[in-house]
C-alpha cells in the first residue's frame, strides 16, 4: 500500500522535526520556524519566504514559514519574543518593528531581541496624480504652503510606512498635508490612480508600473541615492528637502538570549544567501536591494530606526492604541 507507506513516512518525518534539540554545535538538527508577522502576499511575506527557502537550503534544514499576522505585526513579533532562545524560532522584522513601539502598547520589549542580520532595503517613491498642478518637489512644497492642510495624501493606514514616510516629509519640508488613510496599499493606490486623493508615497514595486504608463508622476525617491529603476527621478534630498531620508527594510531577529554561535552561523548563512544571483534578482523585482550587516551593526541600525520614527510619531502627534 504505497499510500499508507508514504503517509507513515510523512508522519515519521514530521515527528522528527520536533525531536529534542541536541548540543548547539550541530545546529540546526531540526526544522526552523520563521515567523512572518504579516499575512501571505505582502512584501514582508514575499521577501521572508524567498530568504527562508534559500536559507534552509544553506543550513541543510527546512525552514517552515509561519504567518502570524495582526496588530501591525506585533502579534507575530511577540511570539518570537517569547519563544525559546534556541535558534529554532526566528522572525522577519520590517520597518513596522521600529514604528510599533511608539504606536501600540506592546506585550514585549521591542529592544530585547537578538539581531541576526539585515536582508534588504527598499526605496519609496513620492508620486502624484497628473491632475495636481505641480511637477517637482519644490512646486509641491510651494503649493502646500499656499494651501496649508488642503492637499491630501493617501496611505495604507495609520502607522504604515506610507503614512510615516510622508509625515517625515511634512516635518522636514515644513508643510501641512491632510492624511487620508486606507485599509491597505491596494485601496490607497486605487484612490490615487482615480485622482481622488492626489499624493502618495509608496514602494517602488507598487508605483513603477503606473509611473511607466503615465498614470502617476514620480516627483522623488526617498533613499540616499537615486534608484537604478528610476534613474531620472531625483531623491527627495536632491529635490529640495535635504534632510529627508527614509527606507523600507527587512531583517531577521531571534529571541533575546539566543547563543552567539547560532546567531553567527545564521548571519553567515544569510550572507551567502544574499550573494546568490537568484535571490538578488528576486529582491530587484520587489524593488529592494540586498544589504549585508553584521548582527551587531543590524542591532544598532534597528535602534537608529526606532529613534527616527519615535521622533516622527511624537512630533507629528500620531496616536493609535
Amino acid at each position: 500500500m504505497p499510500k499508507l507507506r508514504s503517509l507513515l513516512l510523512a508522519a515519521v518525518a514530521l515527528m522528527a522535526l520536533t525531536a529534542p534539540g541536541a548540543a548547539q554545535s550541530d545546529y540546526p538538527n531540526r526544522a526552523i520556524r520563521m515567523v512572518i508577522p504579516f499575512p501571505p502576499g505582502g512584501s514582508n511575506d514575499v521577501v521572508g519566504r524567498m530568504v527562508s527557502t534559500a536559507l534552509g537550503e544553506k543550513l541543510g534544514r527546512q525552514i517552515i514559514v509561519d504567518n502570524r499576522a495582526g496588530a501591525g505585526g506585533s502579534i507575530g513579533t511577540a511570539m518570537v519574543a517569547t519563544a525559546p532562545p534556541d535558534g529554532y524560532t526566528l522572525g522577519v522584522v520590517s520597518i513596522a518593528h521600529a514604528v510599533n513601539p511608539w504606536m501600540y502598547k506592546l506585550p514585549y520589549d521591542p529592544k530585547a531581541f537578538a539581531p541576526v542580520g539585515l536582508m534588504a532595503t527598499g526605496t519609496n517613491v513620492l508620486v502624484i496624480h497628473p491632475s495636481l498642478p505641480v511637477r517637482s518637489v519644490k512646486e509641491l512644497v510651494a503649493l502646500a504652503k499656499q494651501k496649508p492642510g488642503e492637499l491630501q495624501y493617501a496611505s495604507a493606514g495609520v502607522g504604515s510606512f506610507q503614512h510615516l514616510g510622508t509625515e517625515l516629509f511634512k516635518l522636514e519640508a515644513g508643510i501641512d498635508l491632510l492624511h487620508v488613510p486606507f485599509k491597505g496599499g491596494g485601496p490607497s493606490m486605487n484612490d490615487v490612480l482615480g485622482g481622488h486623493t492626489k499624493i502618495m508615497m509608496s514602494s517602488l514595486v507598487q508605483t513603477t508600473p503606473h509611473i511607466k504608463s503615465g498614470r502617476l508622476l514620480a516627483l522623488a525617491t526617498g533613499g540616499k541615492k537615486r534608484n537604478p529603476v528610476l534613474p531620472d527621478v531625483p531623491t527627495v534630498a536632491e529635490a529640495g528637502v535635504p534632510t529627508y531620508e527614509a527606507l523600507n527594510w527587512w531583517g531577521i531577529v531571534a529571541p533575546a538570549g539566543t547563543p552567539q554561535a547560532i546567531i553567527d552561523k545564521l548571519n553567515a548563512a544569510l550572507s551567502q544567501v544574499q550573494d546568490m544571483p537568484d535571490v538578488q534578482k528576486q529582491f530587484d523585482l520587489q524593488g529592494a536591494a540586498v544589504q549585508k550587516m553584521s548582527p551587531a551593526d543590524f542591532g544598532k541600525f534597528v535602534l537608529t530606526e526606532m529613534a527616527r520614527w519615535e521622533r516622527v510619531v511624537k512630533q507629528a502627534n500620531i496616536k493609535a492604541q
Binding site: M103, G157, V158, G159, P181, F182, K183, I318, K319, A320, Q321
Partner: peptide, 8 residues
Amino acid sequence: TDVNTGVQ
C-alpha cells in the same frame, strides 16, 4: 482598528 484614526 478604526481605519480612519487608528484607534482600537
